[in-house]
Design a protein around this nucleic acid. Structure first.
Lengths: 293, 293
DNA sequence: GACAAAATGGAATATTCATTTCACCCATGG
DNA sequence: CCATGGGTGAAATGAATATTCCATTTTGTC
């Protein structure tokens, strides 16, 4: 077997990185001048280093949507003997990595070195993780299923959320659009919200989100919709929330905070899951119907 | 090919460990009663788990001073289909170690009670946690500090983010408002964005957020602002992102995904931290100035 | 617009690798 | 002392895998 690097032997004699960080820098530096497919797979490699370490040429190739030969070409292009040689770099990265405890210490030290700014970032990351793990420990599986059920049946889903909750409904609106689910984001800048929700029927449904201090508008709208017998699902932060009263189904999500600024990570995870679960349910129902006919 | 476990099928029907810790316990428990060579190689495996994860049967065998076939026999003896099957356990250990929150994630994945809906919710929680722990492990302290620096000095902060990134800038807009920081959310429904950003001066700054597939509008606006010498801070998902090129300072946030739907939790945490850090910095500067006078 | 050079996809090939096989060894019980 | 069973080493086998080759497409240049 030849070494497979004849034509580039002299051009980069001393420049073949033998550790991951150098390789990363090397790739980032030259990515601009690489051929299209090589750049594509190089980007994939840096984004999914674990997959390179563990996968086979074929599996990686299909994941990165290229031919296996492209992987070999990339390796040669970078000066390695072949794909396997390149792969050892990615494996070395995992070997060198010390235990997770040490890792955390290192990142802590770095954050202290980074000063006050990094401490803030760390604080919010911690708050987000706390919120998520709290939700995962007592995840409201039944409420979630009911919510999926109610919203899954709705012709149009009305989304209510102001102020701090607005980014959540904004994201849901995006997700619903992507998934082809009819919905209406109640967030007009021209004050016609009240009028918009009057079109809701009992065959529709609403999702209302509000945290303390509760936006009075959201409460009012939720109450109005419930009064007209439109099912209302609520996402809020306390059983005593006025939203919980105005809803047919609600869940409580308690978010941790960093120096007074509350996270919305757990709620966000919920808001990402909800549209997908709804789409999933509708897809099943559709295929079930098709089978019936 | 047979499963290769005929003779021990009934003796340990339900007892083949699928994670490293169980396997370790399992081996320690039975090591005494194992044949000599098998015990020898089992001890080697527990002492050098990384070698098992990445080595070939031949290389491991010579390192442990046994025959390759002994490795296959050990795997069979423990109830696995073959050496490769056993090896996946050792590889899984390295994968999991990446995340400092591995235990929680595992318990999350295992608690698959509650049906398909809960599984979706679980999936998104897992993806969110992965994203967060990845960011906390390699948190971009310097980039973050630079970003705080640049944005802290700006008279007006312009926020650019469309589609999936819009909820992020929407939240920042809310936070900036609460903190009394002058800013401008470039998200008009009437198409005057291009005109809005023309008012930006080098004394202002922009924060642009975009993930693959990059919204062309955001890229264009960021480039336009950079061309007019307004500092641009970017938040994106790859060093090769067109946004990274159009920015004076950028950070990479790689988000995990659940069945193709990417999380934005890590980015969200960053977007919550940024305004607070900026406000913090300005407050310090102010008090410093007051002391001077 | 034509040509040359580079890049790419896909199939053929060569190699590596896990697994199986079989001959031999060694302990144990008759 | 022999017979029997599992245990072990070493080579044979066949599957899996990386690599190479070649026809075709794309890119850059005159």
């Amino acid at each position: 077997m030849t070494r497979g690097m004849g034509e580039m032997a002299e051009s980069q004699l001393a420049a073949v990185p033998r550790d991951f960080d150098s390789l990363r820098a090397h790739i980032i530096e030259r990515q601009e001048q690489m051929p299209k497919r090589l750049a594509q797979v190089a980007a994939f490699a840096l984004a999914n280093p674990d997959d390179i370490a563990f996968g086979t040429a074929a599996s990686i190739a299909s994941a990165a949507d290229v031919q296996p030969s492209t992987l070999v070409r990339l390796a040669h292009h970078l000066g390695y003997a072949g794909f396997s040689d390149l792969q050892t770099i990615f494996r070395g990265r995992l070997r060198e990595r010390t235990s997770s405890y040490e890792e955390r210490l290192i990142s802590l030290e770095q954050s202290e070195a980074g000063g006050a700014d990094a401490a803030v970032l760390n604080g919010f990351l911690t708050a987000a993780m706390q919120s998520l793990s709290r939700l995962s420990q007592q995840l409201p599986a039944e409420s979630f299923s009911r919510a999926v059920d109610i919203l899954g049946k709705a012709e149009t889903i009305y989304l209510l959320g102001k102020r701090r909750s607005y980014p959540l409904v904004a994201h849901m609106s995006y997700a619903f659009s992507k998934l082809g689910i009819r919905h209406q984001l109640i967030a007009s800048p021209n004050g016609v919200d009240q009028e918009s929700i009057q079109f809701a029927t009992p065959r529709d449904a609403a999702l209302a989100i509000s945290f303390s201090p509760y936006a009075p508008e959201t409460i009012r709208h939720a109450e109005a919709m419930q009064a007209s017998r439109t099912p209302v699902v609520a996402l809020t932060d306390s059983p005593f929330s006025p939203l919980a009263r105005a809803a047919d189904c609600w869940f409580e999500v308690s978010e941790a905070d960093f120096s007074g600024f509350r996270s919305i990570s757990a709620s966000m995870a919920l808001c990402m899951a909800l549209p997908v679960a709804i789409a999933e349910k509708r897809r099943h129902k559709k295929t079930a119907k098709q089978k019936m006919e």
